[in-house]
Computed example of a mutant assay.
Amino acid sequence: MLKGYLKIIRPANSVAAGLAVLLGVIIATGTIPPASLPLIAVVFLVTAAGNVINDYCDSEIDAINRPERPIPSGAVTKKGALVYSVILFAAGIAICLLPFVNPLCLAFAIINSAILVLYAKTFKGMPLIGNICVSYLAASIFLFGGAFAGIEGLMQNTVIAAITFFAMLSRELLKDAEDMEGDRAGGAKTLPMIIGVPKTGKLCLVLAIAGIIISLLPLIKFWGPCYLILIAVADAIILFAVAKGARAADSKALIDSKATTILKTGMFLATAFMLISALLF
């Protein structure tokens, strides 16, 4: 039973999300203050809670498609999963009540917890809205880390958050376009199924360009020649990826283009280069 409760939180993903918040702290402050370390636990717990509530809401579908998952396999009961998610959400939010944690962090923890619940219950099945939720939640990890240092720290992380949001949204939509046939067979309804692969690719190109433009604006304290040279490399890879996606006529062509894999590389480099620039500054 304990194994089931561990598996359902997807520990690897939750730990990765927790550690990612430190990037936001570094970009905001140039260092990792000891008082910021509890933020790792907050993101871990809220992410874990989101994974649990997601499995709770998908339990009937998983009973058919993913019977090995904790709830359909019987390792975790539905009621147990619901209680578990509430405890995890509450624990994550409670840490934000510590006196040395900025109230902005508490606001993010509450809002993101609500979005995770709404996503699992409703938004996941809505074309584009579900993609926006996933992209925001990924980007908000940096905003949360920046919020530790107050409004100024939050603003320092808007650039990496914007790059993450637009690149992630582009990737999410391209992946939906790749999986269109399987999603149709499974009864899902995604944006590419409504507007088609070519229009989806062009939309992703526009979204990525928006992120690239924001990345080049003088909005951060370490904006300068070094940052611009580094971020230009990541931007070029992101643009190359979405341009390949925009040229795809159908799902097969999109898969063959490897656009989503290249885009993921560009996103990773953008994050790494932002971190390097912040540390050099």
Rank of each mutant, 00 (worst) to 15 (best):
residue 57 C to A: 13
residue 204 C to E: 05
residue 30 G to P: 10
residue 207 L to H: 10
residue 88 L to E: 01
residue 220 I to N: 05
residue 32 I to A: 11
residue 99 P to K: 09
residue 144 F to D: 00
residue 52 V to D: 02
residue 84 Y to L: 04
residue 149 A to F: 02
residue 161 A to Y: 03
residue 212 I to Y: 10
residue 277 S to T: 06
residue 92 G to F: 12
residue 126 M to W: 14
residue 141 I to H: 07
residue 200 T to R: 11
residue 124 K to T: 08
residue 91 A to I: 07
residue 150 G to D: 00
residue 104 L to K: 04
residue 275 L to Q: 06
residue 194 I to R: 09
residue 13 N to M: 08
residue 85 S to V: 06
residue 99 P to I: 02
residue 123 F to P: 01
residue 149 A to I: 05
residue 272 A to R: 14
residue 270 A to H: 07
residue 1 M to Y: 15
residue 226 C to V: 10
residue 27 I to G: 04
residue 148 F to P: 01
residue 66 R to S: 08
residue 197 V to F: 03
residue 195 I to F: 05
residue 188 A to W: 06
residue 272 A to Q: 02
residue 131 N to W: 04
residue 141 I to G: 04
residue 48 A to K: 05
residue 141 I to D: 12
residue 174 L to E: 04
residue 106 L to D: 03
residue 262 I to M: 10
residue 63 A to R: 10
residue 180 M to D: 05
residue 137 L to H: 02
residue 109 A to H: 15
residue 279 L to I: 09
residue 217 L to D: 01
residue 231 I to R: 01
residue 278 A to Y: 01
residue 106 L to R: 06
residue 16 A to K: 07
residue 274 M to P: 00
residue 208 A to E: 15
residue 199 K to G: 09
residue 37 L to I: 03
residue 238 I to N: 07
residue 94 A to R: 04
residue 30 G to H: 06
residue 228 L to M: 14
residue 137 L to M: 11
residue 259 A to S: 15
residue 79 K to H: 11
residue 172 E to F: 13
residue 205 L to F: 13
residue 69 R to W: 06
residue 43 V to D: 00
residue 31 T to E: 15
residue 38 P to N: 10
